[in-house]
């Protein structure tokens, strides 16, 4: 049980996929226009991560070493297809907003990275906690970035207007603003790390 929490908590802060490992940046930048989109993407990616980590750690002893990457990709792509179909059926609005970034979860480095670095070497229970931790780490990073961008760029949070008379600079919901926000956040987190030493 102690190991479970250790594996679980490392993804949230110490090895946060976005701010520390800098993985899976493409969807992070592209969909973090509003909190809702960020949350949708985070949950979709976490679902894929959970499913693929569990399946890969279950079949890890049957996969030949040389063709392991194609095998991982097939497992991951299957879960991505499931997410695609579920999202089309139950929340078509979110599906339209996320667009091509849903099929692109297949090539999200976080998912493939965890399969290669963790799930292919550890048992199901630990892989599950690893996936949960990484997923939650990804979700809170996405929420932070999309919260900042939505608030600064459109003056709202989760669709609600917060401050009256605040004229938002639209640059923050445009692509250039995404790069700026992430650049500054990455700088801030490495500053925190330096201070702690």
């Amino acid at each position: 049980m102690k190991k479970f929490f250790k594996e679980f908590s490392k993804g949230i802060f110490k090895e946060n996929p976005t701010f520390v490992l800098a993985l899976g940046l493409c969807p992070t930048l592209a969909v973090s226009v509003s909190l809702l989109n960020g949350l949708g993407m985070g949950i979709a990616a976490t679902f894929v991560l959970l499913g693929s980590n569990i399946i890969i750690s279950l079949i890890r002893n049957f996969i030949p070493e040389k063709i392991r990457i194609p095998c991982f990709i097939v497992v991951i792509a299957t879960f991505v297809t499931v997410v695609e179909m579920l999202m089309k059926a139950y929340s078509p609005g979110l599906d339209r907003a996320l667009g091509i970034y849903i099929p692109l979860i297949v090539v999200n480095c976080i998912v493939l990275g965890r399969a290669e670095a963790y799930a292919s070497k550890n048992n199901v229970f630990n892989s599950l906690s690893d996936a949960l931790g990484m997923g939650i780490g990804f979700i809170w990073a996405l929420l932070l970035i999309s919260g900042i961008r939505e608030f600064l760029g459109s003056g709202k949070l989760y669709g609600y207007k917060l401050i009256k008379g605040f004229k938002p600079p639209a640059i923050f919901i445009l692509p250039a603003g995404a790069l700026l926000v992430i650049g500054l956040l990455l700088g801030f987190f490495s500053l925190l790390k330096e201070k702690r030493k």
């Binding site: 250039a176 603003g177 995404a178 790069l179 700026l180 992430i182 650049g183 500054l184 990455l186 700088g187 490495s190």
Partner: peptide
């Protein structure tokens, strides 16, 4: 971080 800011 600086690479991101330049890209922005």
């Amino acid at each position: 971080p600086i690479a991101f800011i330049i890209a922005s």
